[in-house]
Design a protein around this nucleic acid. Structure first.
Length: 602
RNA sequence: GGUCCGGUAGCUCAGCUGGAUAGAGCAACAGCCUUCUAAGCUGUGGGUCCCGGGUUCGAAUCCCGGCCGGAUCACCA
């Protein structure tokens, strides 16, 4: 039972005795005691003042007295300030609390079950993230997506779900044809080997090239007196790309061979990026393998009168009843669009897995798309349509606005990661006073963990729903509210524990004295499971990050003020060791949920 | 124009399911390493919580109306 639960029960009893108030949980408002007041936890008594017909202070004092005389009293002292009843919890409670935390290696991991005919089972959540297009390398926007998706998967696992991480690779479509066409026209047979470029970067360069040449053609046509709209439609390059897409859908051998070759280059590049980022998937879907299923579903919907065909042969869904527009599902030339593919992918996924909850980690720019997808799936008779969750996160913006691949104003994922690791290596070079016995390989490994930790934390600490700013001119910090700060705290504890040597047995007695900072730390540790729960409910890695920062900060303050290894009182030393060990454990568990590795030395 | 999201210190962000004196980090300034790792700790300065109403014992937080910024409403994905 948590502290809050115990107190809630006792407070209910108290107000019932005192004022005959039958309080519900919502009225029992407990919060952490504010700095500057004595106490650990505070009851807000305003909700009882009216019914009690007493002043707030009187009510607070009366409840305080009741808590002191309660059976299994855990309150040592109390003080009442206006309507706030500050409670100081007895040290023996905190010692027991610490022992319980120590005994649990999977502290903070919750269980979750759903009832079935065969008994309770773990429910399954599928998390889709990353979802790259195979026409360009990953950039910082994708990094946010990948880190969020991966972290969300781990957080939901900690909340008791069975999680299947999935990736839908957008490996076909007009944008892919643009890269292919540009390579065909201007590439002179260039390959990753011949150019020394990573495959995804090579392809990305041709995607940019297409746009440059296309724009030239548009300008030319406009110079001949054509209006912009027509020029965009009539430019030879776009017509060629459309023709190529049509050929692709018709299975043209030559186009397919080119497509296979170029995609294989991209996948080799992506694999490297994912490995460096430390993310992975349990099941990968390719749109080239799901779009036909989508087309079939659209055809079915058409036959069942749920969609309609226009005179130009294109197929549409009328969503005006749902307050939305009309949505294209198949182009007039019969080729499929994004929506078509997503319908097919969804169907296949539900056929492959007993999904209880489907989560799409996709940017907030696609909110309309998922609203429509949900309605379309529902209309097609899929029970899961209504339940899909679009985990909509904000954009990463640069000081001069949004990133645009075609315009080359992107922060490349590979470059950024390399830069972070190089910066970390540079910083640790200055830390000459320690780690003298370390090999260059170990040093590099630490730099990798620290650099990636800085990057991941930088991104994940921000509320995922909000847009965030990245300034390439300013390197990501290694001091203050950062990943390395937390890693450093962890490394320091590891160092202390190494020097303490012997394994620490939790043989603590309830009468051990605790200082304020020790109590604050234990209390902070005790909050962790609730944070994990909340992070799961709200899909927010940021809550975990902020928690870890607060915990590390409190530990650093404690570490500064009190010695652990030089403490002469054995009882006190063993409490401090046990406390340190568990702070390290929770930091590691929390950072694990963010996908951040923790170096034991740095 | 419709819909959605945001606006908190010079900058980047917490806090937002209503509670005490609105918090961190960075940047600036001042201290702390013969003592468990100074990627640390301590302190100083810095705020019309976009504006105006309303609800309430109490509003950065909830409601309404503005202002500003972003996203979206494609035979793009």
């Amino acid at each position: 039972m948590t502290l809050e639960e115990q107190l809630t029960r006792q407070i209910k009893e108290a107000v019932s005795n005192l004022y005959a108030i039958e309080a519900d949980d919502k009225q029992i408002q407990l919060q952490k005691t504010r700095q500057g007041f004595e106490g650990n936890i505070t009851l807000v008594v305003f909700p009882f003042v009216k019914a009690a017909r007493k002043s707030p202070t009187e009510v607070a004092n009366a409840i305080g007295e009741q808590l002191l005389s309660a059976e299994e009293c855990i309150v040592e002292r109390y003080n009442a300030v206006q309507g706030f009843l500050n409670l100081l919890i007895a040290p023996s409670y905190w010692i027991e609390c610490l022992k319980a935390i120590d005994a649990n290696d999977r502290y903070g991991c919750l269980t979750c079950q759903k009832e079935t005919e065969e008994g309770p089972v773990q429910p399954l959540m599928m998390v889709e993230y990353s979802s790259p297009n195979t026409n360009k390398p990953l950039h910082l926007g994708h990094v946010r997506n990948n880190l969020l998706g991966y972290s969300i998967a781990r957080i939901q696992e900690a909340n008791g779900w069975k999680v299947v991480k999935t990736n839908i690779v957008n490996d076909r479509g007009i944008h892919i044809c643009k890269s292919m066409l540009a390579w065909q026209l201007y590439g002179n047979g260039e390959t990753p080997e011949s150019s020394g470029k990573k495959g995804d970067h090579l392809i990305g360069d041709y995607y940019v090239r297409f746009d440059i040449e296309y724009k030239k053609q548009i300008e030319e046509l406009k110079g001949q007196g054509m209006d912009e709209e027509t020029a965009k439609r009539e430019a030879p390059l776009i017509k060629q790309a459309q023709a190529m897409l049509l050929k692709w859908e018709q299975g043209d051998a030559e186009v397919r061979a080119l497509w296979e070759k170029m995609n294989s280059w991209v996948y080799a590049g992506f694999d490297e990026t994912y490995r460096k980022m430390g993310v992975g998937f349990d099941k990968i879907y390719y749109e080239s393998q799901t779009y036909l299923e989508g087309k079939k579903e659209v055809e079915r919907g058409l036959q069942e009168g749920k969609f309609y065909r226009r005179a130009d042969n294109s197929v549409w869904a009328d969503l005006t009843q749902d307050g939305l527009d009309e949505k294209l599902l198949l182009r007039s030339d019969g080729t499929s669009v994004y929506m078509t593919q997503d319908i097919g992918t969804a169907k296949l996924r539900y056929a492959d897995y007993p999904i209880d909850k489907m989560v799409y980690v996709v940017g907030n720019e696609q909110e309309y798309h998922f609203k429509v997808l949900s309605i379309l799936l529902d209309r097609l008779g899929f029970r899961f349509g209504k339940d899909l969750v679009h985990f909509s996160y904000g954009m990463v913006e640069l000081p001069n606005g949004k990133m645009k691949s075609r315009e080359g104003t992107v922060v490349d994922a590979d470059d950024l990661m390399d830069q972070m690791i190089a910066d970390a290596a540079e910083v640790s070079k200055d830390k000459v006073n320690r780690l003298t016995d370390i090999t260059p390989e170990e040093a590099q490994e630490i730099a990798r963990k620290v650099g990636m930790g800085a990057l991941k934390y930088f991104i994940l600490k921000v509320d995922p729903r909000k847009n965030m700013l990245f300034n390439p001119e300013e390197s990501i910090d290694f001091n203050g509210n950062t990943g390395p700060f937390i890693q450093y705290t962890y490394a320091r504890i590891c160092s202390v524990l190494r020097k303490a040597g012997t394994t620490i047995e939790p043989t603590l007695k309830g009468d051990t004295a605790l200082n304020e900072k020790e109590v604050a730390l234990i209390q902070r540790l005790s909050e962790y499971p609730a944070i994990v729960k909340q992070a799961g409910d709200e899909f927010s890695p940021a809550l975990i990050a902020n928690y870890a920062y607060a915990l590390a900060g409190e530990f650093n303050s404690f570490y500064h003020d009190y010695s652990i290894l030089n403490e002469e009182n054995e009882k006190i030393q063993s409490v401090r060791l046990l406390l340190s060990k568990n702070v390290a454990k929770v930091l590691r568990l929390a950072m694990w949920l963010l996908g951040i590795e923790m170096p034991e030395r740095m």
